[in-house]
Design a protein around this nucleic acid. Structure first.
Length: 176
DNA sequence: GGACGTTTCTATG
DNA sequence: CATAGAAACGTCC
């Protein structure tokens, strides 16, 4: 018998139009559970229009308003607070500890994968930290883009290195 | 088993 | 100094 993933809760996805394209926010009953990048940078999503917000629960409406504000703030190189509640229950304990560490990296600052590994008390799990960053369900708001390679390189970025470069540039963290 | 958003250590020119 | 392995880690395929 193989352990399956935790059962998926009912979730609602909602589009966030921005000058950089349409992001997609996904909510569970606990909070924001996912944030997706635009399919093509700067382009409108070709997904069909979501149902009107009038049908959504009050919590969801509030959360989404916060998410929209936060996403636009980060895209403008500004601070996203306050955030909606985040539902990170899908992650393993290790991943959750990594994501918690990422949230402590302030805007305008960066860290290396090794530094994050040390911060969570697993100094040798450097590579695993990289994987956990890639598994971050809420990019932008959990700033995985602030983790760079120790050698000075950008490291990787699941949504495309171009995004990482842009985000870092906008918060003034990119030295060249 | 293999492959990752890496880092550090140990050789060897 | 530059370059080349190798090991260590957690998770997914």
């Amino acid at each position: 018998l193989i352990m399956n993933r935790k059962p998926l809760q009912p979730q609602v996805s909602w589009v966030i139009p921005t000058p950089d394209g349409d992001f997609v926010a996904t909510y569970s009953a606990q909070g924001l559970a996912g944030l997706g990048f635009p399919r093509a940078r700067g382009r409108k999503s070709d997904a069909e229009q979501s149902p009107a917000p009038t049908g959504l629960a009050g919590d969801l409406r509030r959360w989404h308003a916060l998410t929209v504000r936060a996403v636009k703030a980060v895209l403008a190189g500004q601070d996203p607070a306050p955030l909606p509640p985040l539902d990170l229950a899908q992650g393993t304990p290790f991943q959750q500890s990594v994501w918690a560490a990422l949230r402590k990296i302030a805007r305008g600052q960066t860290a290396s994968y090794g530094r994050v590994a040390a911060a969570i008390g697993r100094p040798k799990a450097v590579r695993a930290v990289g994987s956990a960053c890639g598994a971050n369900p809420v990019p932008l708001l959990i700033p995985c883009h602030r983790v760079l390679a120790a050698t000075g390189g950008l490291g990787g970025f699941t949504a495309g290195l171009e995004w990482k470069r842009i985000l870092l540039e906008r918060e003034g963290s990119l030295k060249r």
